[in-house]
Design a protein around this nucleic acid. Structure first.
Lengths: 244, 244
DNA sequence: TGTTTTAAGTGTGCATTGTACACGTGTAAA
DNA sequence: TTTACACGTGTACAATGCACACTTAAAACA
């Protein structure tokens, strides 16, 4: 904020137009929506039904409005297009290449979201043109959205190793196998079952229920829930770090 | 980007005004500039000489212009105010609280920069009102700049553990003690000298010179340089990760 | 010239964590 | 009752992390 850029109004209490000479820009929000269906990591994309790039696959997005901050804009976009709210959202990066949107100069702030595919019913306005893709089989996207997805995958990988965000992608009750499938999808590598379970158990933040999921094996698999309160108490009291 | 938000021009080749109805905003860039003087981690702040918040300490910043992207804006701001270019810069986070700048609605993209305090001569226009503060003794800052600094410190801590960015803060030639001082400042904890040196040497990316720094001890301490080419070769060929 | 002072430089042993690895069990379906 | 299938469980070895103390080189000083 250089001095030369300023144009100060007479009355310092009138907090308007301090920076009148500056260029203004359009600010968009784009969301990388990750989902998990208990087997594979997915990403939600929509087919653009307007120009530019009509008919191509795209992240969902929208523009920042005057009366909201970026987090609120991301929540609004997510809710408008999918009907979902109360979703895990994290700001990722801001993209600003001059020609990134051929329609008009637009800066985009990317967010990524984590949701459990099966526990939510979609009823957003765009849901007919939306589709879940396996995260490794997603089509080519418009603008710099491919780069956003790449960065989101990398971020998710890092976060999942040090924060218990994986549970955002699972239903409240889940089996060890589902949790392992999730981590294998996120980390994009196979894990050893016994080592994985030992590791998870050593963290001591899951509660094993007396209930089994009989849908996959004849023997059935015990269900677990993530004890969020216990986790947070450990973080606050001992500086505990969830580390896989 | 909702359909209702659009106003498409007649000729799809005229790539202008696709999103005419949308609100535009001011986009600022603010830089957290970390420096190291071979002893302590520092941060560069300036005393604001214009309203609002005139006379208070602040990060350096500026506004995004039409003909540049954010990375370029950050470089420009840094060069204008300090005379320095070719500096390590990384985008940190975008801040958008509605009243964050009481002067006018402004969204700010924070960047952090790493420079070696002693190797650079400052000749930027603002340098008379700028001052290096010990990172733990910095004064209260305007707006949400304290929060930006907090986040930058956390990011630097994480990055320094997995990327060789520490060398950006040191002169080309440095002693093991200086490197250890740097990491102790960044991580904000004391390290064991032998374990530190063993760890660094096991990474095998430093070259020990036949030259000593005699300025601190009578015995003198060997100087080292970071072998960037060797590091990059290891990264590309073996997926090597610099991990402290 | 030798004595003192100061930071530099160096290695080992124990504890913790990571990782590879295989078999018996419970249940439903045939 | 047999079969098929995923579930659930423990150990041994390797690698890494971490605590820990003395000798050395050179300048300053007596």
């Amino acid at each position: 904020m250089l001095e030369e850029d300023l144009e100060v109004s007479e009355d310092p209490n009138i907090h308007l137009n301090y920076y009148q000479k500056e260029d203004q820009v359009l600010l968009a929000v784009d969301c990388i929506i990750f989902g998990f269906d208990k087997e594979n990591l997915k990403i939600l994309l929509i087919k653009r039904n307007f120009d530019p790039e009509k008919g191509k696959w795209s992240l969902i997005g929208g523009f920042l409005k005057k009366n909201e901050d970026l987090d609120q804009a991301a929540v609004r976009v997510l809710e408008t297009l999918t009907g979902l709210n109360d979703i895990y959202l994290e700001q990722l990066h801001t993209y600003s290449k001059i020609d990134r949107d051929p329609g008009q100069r637009t800066i985009s702030v990317a967010y990524y979201a984590l949701i459990d595919v099966d526990s939510h019913r979609f009823d957003g306005i765009q849901i007919d043109s939306a589709h879940w893709f396996d995260v490794n089989e997603a089509p080519d996207l418009i603008f710099d959205h491919n780069e956003m997805v790449r960065k989101a995958k990398a971020r998710l990988k890092r976060r999942a190793l040090t924060k218990p965000i994986g549970f955002e992608l699972l239903p409240e009750k889940f089996t060890m196998r589902q949790l392992q499938n999730l981590y294998e999808s996120i980390l994009d590598k196979e894990l050893d079952k016994r080592n994985f379970i030992n590791k998870i158990n050593s963290l001591d933040v899951l509660v094993k229920l007396d209930e089994k999921d009989m849908s996959v094996s004849r023997k059935g698999a015990y269900l677990y829930v993530f004890d969020k309160d216990k986790y947070q108490k450990k973080v606050e009291e001992d500086g505990f770090i969830f580390k896989l």
